[in-house]
Amino acid sequence: MKILGVIPSRYASSRFPGKPLVDIHGKTMIQRVYEQALQSSSLDELVVATDDQRIFDEVMRFGGKAMMTSPDHNNGTERSAEVARIKDGFDYIINIQGDEPQIHPDQITILANMLNGDVELATLVKPITDYEELDDPGEMKVIFNQQNEAIYFSRTCIPYLRDIQKVDRLKAHNYYKHIGIYAYRDDILQQIVKLPQSTLEMAESLEQLRWIENGYKIQLGFTNLESRMIDTPADLAKLLNEIHS
């Protein structure tokens, strides 16, 4: 399988404008994401997809690959699809989040190893071990069938344990959260970006529900590695206190 890694990156952000270019101990966030992803031997090519000249110039500065894409995309999936249309010949595209500077290369490799030509879409999940994560709407919970295909993603705690107290939920059931890295088979990627928003997607504000609602299968891989998203300046401040270089 020939795999293209795409890091969608945009400058505008309601919560944290310009975050791809913030300094993290001497390196911009986008450089750290790129260098982490580059360590995975599973990618045949890696490119940053952006609509901002400042981000493009920064990627060129540190020696990475970048492409200018349309400013009209609603999300990273649409931006990845544009790159895939231009860079023909790849079997799969892996969408790597541009705001996860500590993404582990092994997470990319785990996902890539799942891609056999039959898999339409794939992503990763991680066991939940912290009670606070169960009720955190920023952590996407997921349930799946016996074939490890996603049934549903939610910002709420699923499944609901009717007769179990909150403090005992993790003892009574294995819960999983979504790690936001996606793999798309090239033909499937071009199909899903043409789908209209679905009712479930709008309800939860989760685009992967559009795919499920339209009958596409999302294969799940499992990891114990954490991947933290930097969504706000407060998230960045916490990260800066934890790492030194």
Rank of each mutant, 00 (worst) to 15 (best):
T69C: 13
T69I: 15
S70D: 14
P71I: 12
P71V: 13
D72F: 15
H73F: 14
N74A: 14
N75Q: 08
T77Q: 13
T77N: 04
T77S: 06
T77P: 00
S80W: 04
S80V: 04
S80K: 06
A81K: 07
V83E: 09
V83Q: 10
A84I: 12
I86S: 06
I86T: 15
I86K: 14
I86C: 00
G89E: 15
G89D: 14
G89R: 07
F90H: 12
F90V: 07
D91E: 15
N95D: 06
N95V: 05
Q97Y: 08
D99A: 07
E100G: 03
P101M: 09
I103D: 08
I103P: 03
I103L: 15
I103C: 11
P105T: 10
P105W: 12
P105I: 10
P105E: 11
D106L: 13
Q107E: 11
Q107P: 00
T109L: 02
L111S: 09
L111W: 15
L111E: 08
L111F: 12
M114A: 10
M114C: 09
L115K: 10
L115C: 11
N116C: 02
G117L: 10
D118Q: 13
D118G: 04
V119A: 10
V125S: 01
K126F: 00
D130P: 05
D130H: 06
Y131G: 04
E132S: 13
L134K: 02
D135P: 00
D136G: 05
P137A: 07
M140K: 02
M140C: 03
K141H: 11
V142D: 04
V142K: 00
V142G: 00
F144W: 03
N145F: 05
Q147M: 07
Q147G: 00
A150L: 01
A150T: 01
Y152V: 03
Y152K: 03
F153M: 09
S154V: 03
C157G: 01
I158K: 11
P159R: 05
P159T: 03
L161G: 03
D163Q: 12
K166S: 08
K166Q: 10
V167A: 13
V167P: 00
R169T: 12
K171D: 11
K171Y: 08
K171E: 11
H173K: 12
N174Y: 03
Y175S: 06
K177C: 06
H178S: 04
I179A: 01
I181M: 15
A183I: 13
Y184R: 08
D187L: 11
Q190E: 11
Q191D: 12
K194C: 03
P196A: 03
S198T: 03
S198E: 02
L200T: 04
E201M: 00
